[in-house]
Measured scan of single mutants.
Amino acid sequence: TTKIQIRLADGSRLIQRFNSTHRILDVRNFIVQSRPEFAALDFILVTSFPNKELTDESLTLLEADILNTVLLQQ
């Protein structure tokens, strides 16, 4: 498993454990389930350093190389 910290656009944080085989789409779905107010918003996930937009949501967390990292919601 891996721990992902997500810094949300409103300044708050979410921390969740995922399997390395989960997909970026699963992280997006977790955000929307945790904070339904973001469901209607068009947002992207970005790595904190170096900044990289995670546009291919079909990638696993392992394939995207974002295990144990911080993601930013923009």
Rank of each mutant, 00 (worst) to 15 (best):
L8W: 06
I66Y: 08
L54T: 00
F49A: 13
P50T: 13
L71I: 14
L45C: 09
H22Q: 13
I24H: 07
R17A: 11
D56G: 02
N29A: 08
D42A: 03
K3A: 04
R7I: 14
S20T: 15
V27S: 04
T55L: 09
A9V: 15
L25T: 14
V32E: 06
D56C: 03
F38V: 05
D10M: 00
S20G: 04
I31G: 06
S48T: 13
V70C: 14
Q5K: 14
S12A: 06
H22L: 12
H22R: 08
E57C: 11
T47C: 07
L45A: 03
A64L: 09
R28S: 01
R13T: 14
K3C: 06
F49E: 14
F38M: 15
N68F: 01
T21S: 11
T55C: 13
K3D: 10
L72N: 08
T21K: 09
F38Y: 14
G11T: 02
V70M: 05
F43V: 03
T47H: 08
K3T: 14
N29C: 00
L45F: 06
L61E: 09
T1I: 08
R23W: 07
Q5R: 07
N51T: 14
G11C: 02
L71N: 07
I31M: 00
S58H: 12
R17Q: 11
D10Y: 08
H22S: 15
P36I: 00
S58Y: 03
D42C: 00
T55Q: 09
I44V: 13
D26R: 04
T1V: 04
G11S: 10
L72A: 05
I31Y: 07
T55P: 09
A40S: 14
T2S: 09
L67D: 15
K3G: 04
A9F: 13
E37S: 08
T47E: 04
L8G: 03
V70R: 14
I24L: 05
I31W: 02
L62S: 13
I66A: 10
I66S: 04
P36A: 03
T2F: 15
D65N: 11
S12L: 06
P36R: 09
A39S: 08
R7T: 03
V46G: 02
D42F: 04
E37H: 09
R13K: 09
T60M: 09
V46Y: 09
N29G: 07
R28D: 04
N68G: 15
D65C: 11
I66G: 08
L41P: 08
F30T: 00
L59V: 10
A39E: 12
N29I: 03
L41M: 13
A9Y: 10
A40E: 14
D10S: 02
V32C: 04
E63I: 06
I31R: 06
F43W: 15
K52T: 06
S20Y: 12
F49G: 15
D26I: 11
A39Y: 10
A9S: 06
Q5A: 13
A64G: 05
L54M: 08
A39Q: 14
H22C: 15
Q73A: 06
L72R: 03
L71Q: 13
L41N: 09
E37D: 10
T47F: 00
F43L: 07
V32D: 02
L59F: 08
S48E: 15
K3S: 11
D26P: 05
T69L: 03
L8M: 07
A40W: 05
N51D: 11
S12Y: 02
L72F: 12
R17E: 13
L71K: 08
V27R: 02
T47Y: 10
L54A: 03
D10F: 15
V70W: 05
D65H: 04
A64R: 00
L14F: 07
G11K: 00
E57Q: 03
P36G: 01
L71R: 03
F49H: 13
L54D: 01
D10I: 01
R35A: 01
K52S: 02
D42T: 02
S58I: 12
L62N: 05
V46I: 10
D56M: 05
N68L: 01
V27F: 03
D26C: 10
K3L: 13
Q73T: 08
S34V: 12
L41C: 13
Q16M: 04
D10C: 00
S34Y: 09
F38L: 09
G11P: 04
E57L: 02
F18P: 02
R7L: 14
T1M: 06
T60C: 10
D56Y: 04
A9H: 10
A9R: 02
N51I: 09
K52Y: 07
A9L: 15
L41V: 14
F18A: 01
E37M: 03
A40M: 10
R28F: 04
T1G: 10
R23N: 13
V70F: 03
I31V: 04
T47R: 14
A40H: 14
R35N: 04
